[in-house]
Design a protein around this nucleic acid. Structure first.
Lengths: 204, 204
DNA sequence: TAAAACCGACCGATAGTCGGTTTGGAGGCA
DNA sequence: TGCCTCCAAACCGACTATCGGTCGGTTTTA
């Protein structure tokens, strides 16, 4: 890696950490260059704007998530499990990350949304391939697979990523997923056990 | 209405127009007070910050949408039509508004998302009541109505409000809606005719 | 020796502050 | 009723701090 390339990666890493811990809006370019020990001019030698830097940071995040998804696909596990695994990428499950937590603070809605939107775009084709595999094995029966998959991702995202959710939400989600993909009732019910109950409502 | 209250409403109206036409981020407080012919201090007498003003503007928008939804519910039309009508509130249909158009410009992602998130919260109970009515009439058959309704709103929002969508998306949405609510196949297919094709992909 | 990397003073715009002035209406009083 | 007092709400605009971004120039590197 060339000298400049290394520096750029360092800057991205620093920004990545700061954006997540304090939010994009609350992180100033001055703070970034101060932590990186470089001058303003150097920063703008590598990035044409703060927002363009955000795009690259998001790119980094997406690539990681996509890589994780691809690994799940390669695994020798039942198709429904693969789907559940990838679905967990959109929603922060029991994964190792304090990363995602910060993403939910109201402060950085901008980054939050850019990430999720792109993530859905990236995951749709990957997950579609898995579903197609499932139809061949007779587990699912449906047409328009990419559209259905995207819909699942949108639901998962919109249901489990916005604040809290209830046990019923999980039940309904499983039911809906089965119906969208044309699966036997109960095929996906194991998902219930995978959901991270920590941010679930306890009452009602 | 007291003097001050009137002024505040005027300011909100001005901000509402400007936020929609130029975006929240691209509208400065200076521009607002210039158009309103008041001083900086006066502005901050009514709003503690620009963002807090945005909250109030959004509140205004939500109330209007909710009011429109309530009117649809009161109407003497078949239950599925009511649902389609309210669903159209989340998604800009052939309605009279140049309003919504501006909401989609990438510039004001912030406002866009705040509005949609809140709108879903407000519409969920209203639409749930309609669906309950539908179950009584035997049109739908499902449990956990609020959760299912919210899911429908999330899908509608995530599918038809993010950039472009295809004819297949509509087909799949209708199919999914019927399955989520436990309706006969074809019950909701008239939705197809309601979708504003103007922002639909033409190719593929 | 040229390009890439780097520097930091400077700039314009912007959200928000602050100390002070004006206004209008409620209450006291003749 | 008419007038005065007084206080809070309404209003003012100069000022500040911060921030993203620019620019002309210097140093490093291959």
């Amino acid at each position: 890696m060339k000298k400049g390339e290394k520096r750029k990666q360092d800057l991205l890493k620093i920004a990545y950490d700061m954006f997540l811990s304090h939010g994009y809006e609350n992180t100033s370019v001055d703070e970034i260059i101060e932590k990186a020990q470089i001058a303003k001019g150097t920063y703008y030698h590598y990035f044409k704007s703060k927002e363009q830097m955000l795009e690259e940071v998001i790119e980094m995040m997406i690539e990681r998530e996509a890589e994780a998804a691809k690994q799940i696909i390669e695994m020798d596990i039942p198709v429904p499990q693969k789907i559940a695994g990838i679905l967990s990428s959109v929603k922060p499950a029991e994964a190792e990350m304090p990363i995602e937590d910060a993403l939910f603070h109201p402060e950085n809605a901008l980054m939050h949304n850019k990430v999720r939107k792109k993530l859905i775009d990236v995951l749709t084709p990957l997950l579609s391939e898995v579903v197609r595999e499932g139809t061949e094995k007779g587990i699912f029966e449906c047409d328009n697979i990419p559209e259905r998959v995207r819909m699942l991702l949108v639901i998962s995202n919109g249901t489990f990523n916005e604040g809290t959710f209830s046990e019923r939400d999980i039940t309904v989600f499983i039911d809906t997923a089965e119906k969208i993909l044309g699966a036997e009732k109960g095929t996906m019910s194991f998902i219930y056990g995978l959901i991270d109950k920590s941010d679930m409502e306890t009452d009602e």
